[in-house]
Design a protein around this nucleic acid. Structure first.
Lengths: 110, 110
DNA sequence: CTAGTGCATCGTAAAAAACCGATGGTTGTT
DNA sequence: AACAACCATCGGTTTTTTACGATGCACTAG
């Protein structure tokens, strides 16, 4: 991937978050976390047809993107969504459809 | 990437769309399209520090994900956002934060 | 007909991602 | 102490992505 200079830090962040979500397994994980808060790694391992190491890696990707947070508490881990990031993402995505400057989604030419 | 059986088609779609957006150049393109409707390929080429062929490929990725639509009209192309997809994405993303069953974002354990 | 412009596609090299098994570190249990 | 459970990380292979130049196609202008 190439560095893009004229890029907003917001756009950089968006790309990073989107990339992290761009995998079925990770979408599943995030979806699960949005329903029942706090799951252990083993929960996801039994939820997905993937090896434990792979699931752990996916969790790491999500964590590095700031989408989830994880703490190790004794033997097992505890993951949950990062509310701030999720909210921000929701806002960014919404703005794509309806940009802030009070602009509706009416099509232009094309 | 491995097939995941218990996956909703909605989740499949989400992963595909997220993946398509998981690149700074493509976020820039979509962002630009959300502001001024309908741009030609050459517009993006001058906007991004990338070769024309690369930009064209990025546009293809976005098109295949259903995020943008493109028509060739004489010499030059005309791209615009796919409103349906963008709206759907916005909804899906919003649901991650606040799932449909009237569930607020209050944290559980963790 | 002959450029020339605007795009898409092909071929390819380099980089990144996905996945697994194996290993090792904590913690809790017997 | 020894064992088992839970997780993260380390190598390594395969697949995918990214990026580029080169080529080819459709249309326009001279």
């Amino acid at each position: 991937m190439k560095e893009i200079d004229g890029l907003t830090s917001e756009e950089e962040r968006a790309a990073a978050v989107f990339r992290a979500l761009g995998n079925p397994a990770r979408v599943r994980i995030v979806r699960e976390l949005s329903l029942r808060n706090a799951c252990a790694t083993s929960d996801f391992v039994s939820l997905l047809p993937l090896a434990q190491s792979t699931v752990s890696q996916h969790l790491k990707v999500l964590k590095e993107a700031g989408i989830i947070e994880g703490t190790i508490d004794g033997g097992d881990a505890c993951y949950c969504l990062n509310a701030e990031t999720v909210r921000w993402l929701s806002g960014f995505t919404g703005d794509i459809c309806c940009p802030p400057p009070a602009q509706d989604c009416s099509p232009g030419p094309c």
